[in-house]
Each structure stands twice: as structure tokens, then as C-alpha cells.
Design a protein around this nucleic acid. Sequence first.
RNA 1: GGGCCGUUAGCUCAAUGGUAGAGCAGUAGGCUUUUAACCUAUUGGUUGAAGGUUCGAGUCCUUCACGGCCCA
Length: 511
Amino acid sequence: MTDKEHGVTPEVDENRLIVERREKLRALREQGEAFPNHFRVTADAASLLERFGDADEWDQSALEERDEEYNLAGRIVSRRVMGKASFVHIQDGSGARFQLYLRRDDLPEGVYKAFKQWDIGDIVGVTGKLMRTRTGELSLHASGLELLTKSLRPLPEKWHGLTDQETRYRQRYVDLIVNPEVRETFVRRSLIIRGIRHYFDAQGFLEVETPMMHHIPGGATARPFVTHHNALDLDLYLRVAPELHLKRLLVGGLEKVYEINRNFRNEGVSTRHNPEFTMLEFYWAHADYNDLIRLTQDLLHRLVTQLPGMADGRVDYQGERIDFTGDYERVTVADAVVAHYDELSVDDVKNADRLREVCRAHDITVDDSWEWGRLLMELFEEGVEHRLLQPTFVTQYPIEVSPLSRRNEDDPDFADRFELIVAGREIANGFSELNDPEDQAERFRAQVEARDAGDAEAMHFDQDYIRALEYGMPPAAGEGIGIDRLVMLLTDSASIRDVLLFPYLRPESSE
RNA sequence: GGGCCGUUAGCUCAAUGGUAGAGCAGUAGGCUUUUAACCUAUUGGUUGAAGGUUCGAGUCCUUCACGGCCCA
């Protein structure tokens, strides 16, 4: 079983359905080119249905009068053979299904007989004219038909389809063939990303790409993946965030930049976490976090309303209606926590002992090394965050948990930072950037201390980043938006795996 | 990492500890406007893996693998 030969002789454990199809393929090879690539399409299913779908306007006589021939190519997804005539549905690249009417006497000699040997899953090219059947379905009356690709593996059953989650994720290609809503989700994902690019381009931001492989991981508090460069004999980290490189670009004079790309975090896998995920980050010189809040609200409003079915700016997510129109709520972390925990008052916000007491009273596990800022955040995340259903800007985060943010001028214990919470989840995180190199160096040192104390997520000291700041970074604001979570929200997906084409899964045990 | 649930034919699912089944798909035949087409016949199983209990295990026990949901 563990023998490697097992993998190179897959025939041994193939089921009879595949054996039968392989035999059919062998026969095709004997007859000539078994995988031809000469058929060219002149139409697609979705367009034909769009244009001629109306049964009143395009009845049989109107279609006959039009008398135009089309070439379609697609995968056979169902077939009903009735002696010397058959009905077949094909599904093509447009994602739609189209019915073919095949009649032995209307096809070239031998074609119909050959067709009867074909299988559901095979990809065919068909030539014919439009017709409307007795039951009113727009169909293509075939005058030519050929097999373009033989399918060796049977597709899931037509009625129940493929429902096994594991198979759907592992064999997404099959999921895409048989579950139309999967295709819709990923089309929508593409629309969302396109909309974001369009928005930032229109606002004068420059799209850039910064390294995915870092010598020093930074820009977020998270554990990195380690990889190795052989020629240089050097360990490298997959980036946890692009932030520090993007801010170097601000120093260099690229004052409005954005990047949409992958980040990698060495953490658990869950319905909300994938080891690699897509982030938008953007940086804007001579702006502060209030400008970001305005931009974020404008971006989301425009983005949502341009999506099919969401023109009114309202989104149904897991049974809850979320409204992206108007001004979103704003609340400071401290106010939100004090409002939620009756036993706390505004005077307790910086009282670590008091906060620790309340954490323990609510069964929140705390570390003795945490100061009031971290404790306050624990209380917020445990008690408040998941209750914020409608879009809410939560502002003024403790400096302790914001090592790259600018201090608030009135209360330097807090950062000029916000997170946008929607449906109980963080969607965006933005702040006025820290451009004081000496303060930044201090904060790096504090992170290094936390690392030495055992916090594997704490940041490293990035000397080159400090050097860049010492040249002078213009005052700026920067923000990250988690694309996967945003797509989940806008596609009503419960799991991040449903918005990733190939979510991470452990290797299959048989391999 | 912890708890609960799941893994049976290609797919979707059954099966008191007592002969592993159905529908679809497949195969053979019939059927020239069907649409979950229909009619007749029929093939198909290492019950996730390895141990154990038992006269007998898909079913009970242990370990492991993978997945789902919840929690951290």
C-alpha cells in the first residue's frame, strides 16, 4: 500500500466505470485524433439564451425565419436517448446549459451511432440552428456533432449532485462543473476585486507589488512561515503583511500606493482562517485615519451598490440584513467596553488590575504580562466585537496593541486607529501612521522584549525600516482590508473555504 | 489543542450484532420533441485504515487518518 509503484499504475484500482470509458477512448485513438483541437465556437449558451430566450418573441416560426447556424462547444451534463432522436444538455464556458436536439437522420452518416457511445462529462462541439421544442425550450437542432474531449471519470449524480464538503474543496473542478452557485461566488469575488482596483486607480493610487519573501517578518503581529533559499543558504519568511515595504515607498515619494496580494500566517485553520489569504493594503500621505474612515465608507458603499442584487446597498449575510448606506456607527474601544460591562466605569479603562479582575470574572484567560491595553482588547473581543452586526468604526486602540500607529495627540496611550467591524468580524484596520523614527525604534524594542518573553507573534526589530523613517516619511494614513472576509460577506458565505478556489486541506491520506 | 458528529457502490443515501441494499449513473435491448424522459433485463462493495471483543462486526471497543460543526 505504501509502495510508490502504486501511484504510477493507477489502473489497478480503477473502478469499472473508468475502465469502460478508457476502452472507449482506446477505440477513439484507433479511429484518429482522439483529442482534436480544431472546432471553433461562434456562440455561447448564456448569450443565446439571453438573446433568444423569450418564447413569445422567438417562437418556432421566428427562429425558422432567422435560419442562422451556430457552433457551440460544451460538456454533456445530461442526456435522454429515445431511439433515433436524443435530447442533450451541454454546459459551456458561459456557465449556462443549453439543450441540443439530435436526430439521427439530420446528422451525417454514423454520427448518431457514435454519439450513443459517448458519456455524460464528455466535451462536444455541435453545429446547428435554433429551434423551440414542443415544451417551449430553446434548443439547437444539430446538423453536426463531434467529440472534442473524452471524459474518463463519471460526474456526480444529476439530482443530488456533489454535496460532500471535502470532495468539493479537494476537487474544486468537479464542484465548479456541478454546483452553479460556486461559479457565481467566484465570479462575484472577481467583480469585487476589480471594483476595488478601479476605485483606487480612479483616486490616483498606484498599484504596486512588494516582496512576499522577507528577511525580517513584520507589519503584523503573527507567526510567519519559514522557507529557505538554497543558493544563498538563507532562511526567509513568507510575509505576514506588506506594510513596512509600502511605507518605505511613502518615504520614496510614492505617496498614494496600494497592493492586493497574498499574506501568509502560520496559525490554525478554521472557517475564518486560511494559511494564505488576500489583503488589500493602501497608504496615503498627508491624510489621517479620519480620511480613511471617509474613504472606506465611500469605497464600500460604491462597491456594494455596483454588485448584482445589491443596488440598494443592503446585504443579507447568514440571515441578517446589513446596511452599507449612510454614515456608519462610530465608537471608541473604551466606550464600547465600558458600555458592555456594567461593573466597569471610564475610570477603570487604564487600570490593569481592575480589567484583569473583570476578565477573570468572565472566564477570559489572561496572561500576567499583559498591561491594561491588551486586557481592554480582550474584553472588547470577547464581549463586544461579535455583537456589532451593522458596519461600525471602532476607534482609539491602545498603543500597546498598535506598534505601528501614530499616538493620539490628546491621549498618547491610545493610537489614532480604527477597525471596521461588520457582522461581528473585523473587515478593515486602519490608522494614522507612526512616522517618528525614534518612537518607532522604541516600539520595536518593546516588541522584541515581548518576543524574548515568549510572545511568538511579536515583531522583530527592522533596522532598515527605521533607517527609512530617518530619511523622513510624510505624515500618512494606511489601511488593510481583508479581501476574503469581505467576499464572504458579499457572497453570503459561512466559511472562508467557500470563497477560496483551493482552500488549504491536509494531504489526502492515500497519497 | 479540546469536545461532538461523520467516512458504506462513481454520486446521493439505507441496513436490531445474524446473507451489505436502493435511487441515479453504467451495461444490453426498445423507443424520431424529451427534460429527474420512459419500458425490460442486468453489472457493480477491501463498509476510511489497523487492531480487539464475539460463534458471528458496516454495527460494539481501542488507536490512527481525513473532513464538518462548536470551543480555545
